[in-house]
Write a protein that binds this DNA or RNA. Structure first.
Lengths: 329, 329
DNA sequence: ATAGTGTATGTAACCGGTTACAGAGATAAA
DNA sequence: TTTATCTCTGTAACCGGTTACATACACTAT
């Protein structure tokens, strides 16, 4: 690999001049510039990013910490971040934390050592102190913001009310909720939305709460048990995977969806279009969330002002077959 | 951030000694080592990876180029790579190429500038010259190897024969194949396996080939048309997404799966367990493929000998409801 | 004639590590 | 006693860029 000194020698100038040509700053004579450019071409010279990083203390790289890329919610989010960062010439280091603060801390340490310019964090485990101290721009994604970090989330509370209300509107009166892990903030927000809506409708009943832990299998098992113990005609699942679990449970007991039990999920991952019947869901603007987080991070890195610190994006009710009923009931 | 010189000063030694302590090489007196370690602790010193990289020309970072992380085949693969690389203290830069050689080339250039220690490539577009010249260890994943690069793939040809044979075994005689893009090598391998098996069974009929382009929607449309034109009692889809498309088409026409038309997919992504009926599929050891590719890359980086250059991993028939028939026919 | 400004380029320090090399003391071997 | 070897440590060059500073020349204003 050619270095800047090779280029300088070939062009008959000093390294400083080559650097000036590369970075388009300082004075350089037109002819000199041409000579340098020709030398660069001839040697197929590409500046060494590492040397540049060492001096400039900016690596054009960011860290993206997600719980688990193989959880179907995250690929689209990651894709969005990568797309936007690519536009601004940043590279993305992907880290899977499994929601373990151990791994998160470890990764944050490594990322700092590599001089990343910023970090996008999808987590709710990390004690904020650790993050606060890290001296690198951070954007919190899909989890409520800690302290003063910019954050991007969707309206979990509102979405949950929307889902619950939708089941009511199509005629459901015994509406169960399959709940995600109690330590995950967005799961609790969705639960709150469900509870408030149910109370307002005068339908609240604690027995209609099912624990699904955001997992298909657990949701299915728990729904099977619940269906045998209590009557219900609608299920609002805290995420789409659990909605599939519920769907399977209902079908396994010989009940029809949506005729006997209507089901609605949450997230709007592609999977919801693949089941039979297709699942209604509250769709989050996943790609947009990632894209906005990335853009905010770039702004923070470049020390530009943010128009807004906390973004709460609207969600959308997507009606599909699993909540399609003929008016009456 | 403290530097090695800060540590040296605090411990009353030279930077060379600190470096020796850090890297456990050269002679260092026990007492001195203790003093240095104490200073490191006190300053919470972490060596600057960038400076280290510049000198050593190894960044403990690799590049992973996939077509599109939001394609459900890849998250598990990426996860596997990340997991294994993490064990060996490597960090992973994720790149989405969209199968465009433009983007691939661009990324490869950037990765080189960042001194990545190796690259895992999931592609079939890149002209091998470009890759050959890049002077960085490369492992080719999920696509047949180019030249002398190590490669990890699953047995596409054998899997396709297995799928076709399975449909035959459960009684199907008019077995259609939904084909992936003709420029994608593994799609063609699967087609070849289907064709050879069909010819051996004496069932070969060109009219039973459906173009699905690896896309759910296109597969569904094409299958709808095909079902109206030709009789068929079995469908082997080139990937799972297209199998879902076929399933939807069959159901939309009021036919039953598996009674009227049996369906089998390919890949074994989690989605196949979520449909109703659940989809039979040829399951590739996705995680293992990623993990092996990562391990090979580490070996190449560390210049250790490889036991094997080309890995062709076995696939597995996963029988689910979509091909479940009562013996006779 | 002189000072001031803009243009053009080079020298060398610097970023924060690693390591070749040199030097010094201690110990063992001849 | 001399020499060789081992242990321990420091100095300084190096990795490949960037940039502060110095220098030099051309041109303009006074």
């Amino acid at each position: 690999m050619a270095t800047i000194r090779d280029v300088a020698k070939l062009a008959g100038v000093s390294v400083a001049t080559v650097s000036r040509v590369l970075n388009q700053n300082g004075y350089v004579n037109e002819d000199t510039e041409k000579r340098v450019k020709k030398a660069i071409e001839q040697l197929n010279y590409k500046p060494n990013e590492v040397a540049r990083t060492l001096f400039k203390k900016t690596s054009k790289t960011i860290g993206l910490i997600v719980p688990d890329i193989s959880n179907p919610f995250f690929p689209e989010l990651v894709r969005a971040v990568e797309d936007v960062m690519n536009i601004y010439d940043y590279t993305v280091i992907l880290c899977n934390s499994d929601e373990k603060s151990e791994k998160e801390k470890q990764y944050i340490g490594i990322l700092k050592q590599k001089y990343v310019d910023g970090i996008i964090l999808t987590t709710n485990q990390l004690e904020s102190d650790e993050v606060l101290e890290l001296g690198v721009p951070v954007v919190v994604l899909d989890r409520p913001s800690m302290h003063s970090f910019p954050s991007v989330i969707a309206d979990n509370y509102g979405g949950a009310r929307l889902a619950t209300r939708h089941l009511y509107d199509i005629g459901c009166r015994k509406i169960a909720h399959i709940q995600g892990p109690t330590h995950v903030v967005n799961a609790m927000e969705r639960f709150r939305g469900y509870r408030d809506e149910m109370q307002e409708l005068g339908l609240w009943n604690e027995q209609l709460i099912i624990q699904g832990n955001y997992q298909l299998k657990q949701a299915k098992e728990a729904t099977l048990r619940a269906l045998q113990e209590h009557k219900m005609d609608g299920i609002f699942a805290g995420n789409d995977a659990m909605a599939v679990g519920a769907l399977k449970a209902v079908q396994q007991l010989g009940l029809r969806v949506p005729e006997d039990v209507a089901i609605i999920g949450y997230d709007g991952i592609p999977l919801t279009e693949m089941t039979t019947p297709e699942l209604s869901t509250i769709s989050q603007p996943i790609y947009e969330m990632g894209a906005i987080a990335a853009r905010i991070l770039v702004k923070k890195i470049e020390a530009k002002p943010l128009e807004q610190l906390h973004y709460v994006l609207p969600v959308k009710l997507v009606e599909r077959q699993s909540t399609q009923r003929r008016g009456t009931r």
